[in-house]
């Protein structure tokens, strides 16, 4: 037990340092990431202007789209970047499928370690480094748009649920993408699957726009699929758009999805390894 924990801890530290190598590039990258956000702010500003019936003092925008005022929307889009910082797993699916295809996965089979577990540790380490380094750029942008958070910071209860759903969104993103990567044991090429995933993510996770904007016919798809927990749900919780029973029911469903994909990833891994055959060195 102790030996195992020490192995994991070592690997965690290695992953931490591996991530610290390109600091400069990294911080510039995070800063730049918000540039498209600036154009979005101007675009929505222009759009909400057209909803304005009469002039308001100080040019305040009063219109609403799908229950979101302009200020709500900006706050929402900022919060979604936070959720995405938890739930997005760049290169996870392709990394796993590549290591299955080129046989690298062998190294996990002959060592007494669990591949998925190690990848999880690696991701946790990478994400931690990311949050530490991205904190300043994020704080800068949140401060710049502080007036958009018209409800202020939510109470302790809501905030706790928010944090929980962020952590869950990390786990959900991880296990979901791991499952997609593990499908490579059956179909070597998973890029088309990744593409379909991205397509669904674009419309149903809410990282481009609040899900309340979707036409009513898609409501069932939002509810039946796990995508909303990758971006929309935590942000909506923070903004107080989801309250009462719906809030706790949402968390329960999110936990259920995490469990589902966790179990599925175990199943895929065990079945996949049985199918797998590696040759050569």
């Amino acid at each position: 037990m102790w030996a195992k924990a020490s192995t994991w801890w070592t690997y965690f530290r290695v992953s931490l340092e591996e991530r610290m190598v390109y600091r400069g590039d990294f911080i510039i990258g995070v800063m730049m990431r918000f540039l498209p956000f600036a154009t979005q702010v101007f675009m929505y500003w222009a759009i909400f202007e057209t909803l304005q019936a009469n002039e308001q003092p100080e040019g305040r925008l009063t219109g609403e789209i799908g229950g979101f005022t302009f200020y709500d929307l900006i706050a929402y889009l900022l919060l979604v970047t936070v959720t995405r910082a938890f739930s997005s797993m760049p290169g996870l699916t392709s990394g796993i499928s590549n290591s299955v295809r080129n046989g690298e996965v062998k190294k996990y089979l002959i060592q007494p370690i669990d591949m998925v577990g190690f990848m999880l540790i690696q991701r946790v380490a990478h994400k931690l480094v990311y949050y530490v380094m991205a904190f300043l750029p994020f704080a800068f942008w949140f401060y710049l748009f502080r007036d958009c958070f018209t409800n202020g910071i939510p109470g302790v209860e809501i905030f706790a649920v928010y944090l929980l759903s962020l952590v869950l969104s990390f786990l959900l993103g991880f296990f979901l993408e791991t499952c997609m990567g593990l499908i490579a044991f059956w179909y070597l090429e998973v890029t088309s699957l990744t593409f379909i995933y991205m397509l669904f993510n674009f419309f149903l996770s809410g990282h481009m726009f609040p899900l309340t904007w979707l036409p009513g016919e898609f409501e069932w798809a939002v509810q039946a699929l796990p995508f909303q927990y990758l971006a929309y749900f935590p942000a909506a919780v923070f903004l107080g758009k989801i309250t009462g029973a719906a809030l706790y029911w949402g968390i329960v469903v999110q936990i259920a999805w995490v469990f589902f994909f966790f179990l599925l990833s175990r199943l895929l891994w065990h079945r996949g390894v049985k199918r797998y055959s590696g040759f050569g060195g």
Binding site: M43, A46, I47, E49, T50, L51, Q52, I65, G66, W213
Partner: peptide
């Protein structure tokens, strides 16, 4: 989302 929506008034 609305009838009069345009990119800018």
């Amino acid at each position: 989302q609305g009838k009069n929506i345009a990119i800018g008034k």
